[in-house]
Design a protein around this nucleic acid. Structure first.
Length: 674
RNA sequence: GCCGGUGUGGCGCAGUGGCAGCGCAGGCGAUUUGUAAUCGUCAGGUCGUGGGUUCGACUCCCACCACCGGCUCCA
């Protein structure tokens, strides 16, 4: 019957509506709440504005503000308002692109006369944006032919460039500008007022009044289309959410991340520093930080030894020749410190990688297949000339120590070796408390790869098989491998949901060939070994930082330099406190006594801030009955009258299981609650 | 490397051209403490470095260094 259409909803049901009903109309027919929360719709798989008239038989879903897709719409629309505000405040400003990104949005501008934003500008821009939102201006969608579009943006060169791109190679442009998906020879715009129109595929919220839960965060420079040879634009970052509550929660999350910042924790706990006298990106580890690092390294050594790795050492500098043979000088010279010239033109470089050294160890004599797989391991300190703007705490430094292994094996051993290496790596990471992973497989890059198609195929499939065997999510990074071989990287999720790339396992066809590596096979012939590069922590410094952020400084007991501190209540309890500490030490628990020359509360506070796992308070009652009062990290109230032996045994067990007091407390609380 | 910001005792901060301050931490003294800050007192800074402007610079200008947020890069 004419005048009625039927649409299908996401739950499979159908709904009859008068012809001409818009997506918003449909939402209203379902419920007021839904209509109020709606910001866009998906019709037959395409995201559209709410005022889109529904065709008969369409599949329709309402996009609400509190969904990921809905927030994207909010953020994108807020970005438009930002652009409108900036153009209003800086007449003649050119606006480039303003997409939604994870948790927010940005917009790039070129200001008249090369002016730049400063943080102070954000306030007046925000005020202007709120004014635009208060006016509740509609977002009006229009379609234009290419030449119309070019005329419309006559004084907006960045928009013209995008439009010109649309007219040209559309696939390429879609790649270049995530903000914009071109469609044949038509461009779409959204107009808020006579004075502001932006090129955009949409969808947008119906009007600016639907926005408002936003905050501008910072200004930054950003190259046009991410190309450092192109002009640098002025970028403003912001965030926007469906409600003030969601916005506040997000800002709280940012604060939490700030509290966990390893640079802050490193300073608070006196773990490391970056003296400017030494140079940018070069850390020194203080005693407490060094103690933690040593525990990490010692455990790693222990595991590697058990895992059949052989330990080697190599120097920090080498003649240029070595990195010419390896190819690093040709490819990565700008990432290396400049050479040291000695002995009439002889150049020495600080090593940026350990692999050539390990290769020379392999090549130092003839090798038999019986020696393979040969797994060489070293905590190898390398130096990389990171550009001045990129150094960042311990995560991006100029001097770092890789827990670097190079495995030489036969082609037949390759698949099995990859599998066991991956198992080993995940196992050790779990011991450090990282247990939520996904894997990323980086495949052959276009064009510049070395090695035969067959080699690449075999290696990639071997990596894929090893990865799939682990039952973890596998994400493809097509074309993301290095020129010399495919790679698996392990991405670990931390306590607040951030992913960090830690371990990498990489096949290499390049270096064995460049160095002419060979071994004598069972057939008495010469063969080239396969080489696997493997880093587990990646960089020890960076892994240290990841652990600090993951645990917010409260490391598991086995990694804490001081595990137990004993506080005598009065100074006549000092001797008993020493006895307790001795009992700990005898069991291999790191314990110290903090004598009673300050009030107990003050001492407890100090050690709490140190994040010591266990604070023991001992007084008359304890000295009389060989007990301690246990104040475990993370607990609200102390546990009085615990027997010394029982306490020590519990800590020993916790160290053995690589646990933390917080976890033990939870399970204990669960048991006590019954 | 590029854009923006910041740099004041060990740490966190105040100080808009005219005598460098506060809190915490530190030293000393007193306090003898039962679960997150006892009281008093003392000391500590050529204000990131180097130039310049000025009668006078923490303050204004220039260069450099370092750090922070991004961009680009990350073997």
């Amino acid at each position: 019957m004419a005048g009625v259409i039927t649409v299908r909803l996401p739950d499979g049901s159908t709904k009859e509506l008068p012809a001409g009903t818009t997506a918003l109309g449909m939402a209203s027919s379902i419920g007021k709440r839904l209509a109020a929360a709606a910001v866009a719709a998906v019709v037959d798989g395409a995201e559209v504005d709410l005022d889109t008239v529904l065709p008969d038989g369409a599949e329709v879903a309402v996009v609400t503000a509190d969904s990921d897709a809905g927030r994207t719409v909010l953020r994108h629309s807020t970005a438009h308002v930002l652009a409108q505000a900036v153009v209003d405040l800086w007449p003649g400003a050119q606006y480039a692109i303003g997409p939604a990104i994870a948790d927010g949005f940005y917009y790039d501008f070129s200001l008249p006369g090369g002016a730049t934003f400063s943080d102070d500008d954000l306030e007046q821009i925000t005020t202007k944006m709120r004014a635009i939102m208060a006016e509740d201006q509609p977002f009006v969608r229009q379609e234009h032919a290419i030449d119309e579009g070019l005329a419309l943006f006559a004084d907006q060169p960045f928009k013209r460039e995008i439009i010109t791109g649309v007219a040209g190679d559309s696939a390429l442009q879609a790649e270049a500008s995530a903000d914009f998906v071109p469609d044949a020879a038509v461009v779409t715009t959204y107009r808020n007022t006579d004075s502001f129109v932006d090129l955009c595929r949409g969808p947008h919220v119906p009007s600016t009044g639907r926005l408002g839960h936003f905050a501008l965060q910072r200004v930054a420079g950003a190259y046009w289309r991410g190309d450092e040879k192109r002009p640098q634009l002025q970028r403003i970052y912001g965030t926007a959410w469906e409600s003030d509550k969601a916005l506040a929660e997000y800002l709280t999350r940012l604060e939490e991340a700030e509290r966990r910042d390893h640079r802050r924790i490193g300073a608070e706990l006196d773990l490391f520093s970056f003296p400017s006298e030494i140079g940018s990106g070069l850390a020194v580890f203080h005693p407490k930080g060094a103690a933690i690092r040593r525990l990490m390294e010692d455990y790693s050594r222990q595991r590697h030894e058990a895992g059949g790795y052989q330990f080697v050492y190599s120097p920090h500098i080498t003649k240029a020749d070595l990195f010419e043979i390896s190819g690093h000088l040709q490819s990565f010279a700008e990432g290396m410190f400049p050479p040291i010239e000695i002995d009439e033109g002889q150049s020495y470089y600080l090593k940026p990688m350990n692999c050539p050294m390990h290769i020379l160890i392999f090549r130092s004599r003839q090798r038999s297949y019986r020696e393979l797989p040969m797994r060489l391991f070293e905590f190898g300190t390398v130096y990389r000339y990171e550009k001045s703007g990129v150094v960042h705490g311990l995560t991006r430094v100029r001097g770092l120590t890789m827990d670097d292994s190079h495995i030489f094996c036969t082609r037949d051993q390759m698949a099995g070796e990859l599998d066991s290496v991956l198992t080993f790596v995940l196992d050790v990471l779990r011991d450090f408390g990282l247990d939520d992973f996904y894997l990323e497989l980086s495949t052959r890059p276009e064009g510049k790869a070395v090695g035969s198609d067959e080699d690449w195929h075999d290696a990639t499939e071997a990596l894929r098989a090893a990865a799939q065997d682990k039952g973890l999510e596998l994400v493809m990074d097509e074309g993301g491998g290095a020129f010399y071989g495919p790679k698996i990287s392990v991405q670990a999720r931390d306590a607040i949901g951030r992913y960090w790339q830690v371990s990498t396992i990489q096949l290499d066809y390049n270096l064995p060939a460049r160095f002419g590596l060979e071994f004598i096979g069972a057939d008495n012939g010469r063969h080239q070994p396969v080489m696997i590069h493997r880093a587990l922590f990646g960089s020890v410094e960076r892994f240290f930082a990841i652990l600090l952020e993951h645990y917010a400084g409260a490391l598991p007991t086995w990694l804490m330099p001081v595990q137990v501190v004993v506080l005598p209540v009065r100074d006549d309890h000092n001797d008993y406190a020493e006895t307790v500490a001795d009992s700990c030490r005898k069991a291999g628990v790191r314990a110290t006594v903090d004598i009673a020359d300050e009030p107990l509360g003050a001492r407890i506070r100090r050690w709490k801030m140190e994040k010591v796992p266990y604070i023991l308070v001992v007084g008359d009652d304890d000295a009389n009955s060989s007990t301690v009062g246990v104040n475990a990290r993370g607990s609200e109230r102390p546990d009085r009258g615990v027997g010394v032996d029982a306490f020590v045994a519990a800590v020993v067990a916790e160290v053995e299981s690589k646990g933390s007091p917080e976890i033990r407390r939870d399970s204990a609380a669960g048991a006590a609650g019954r």
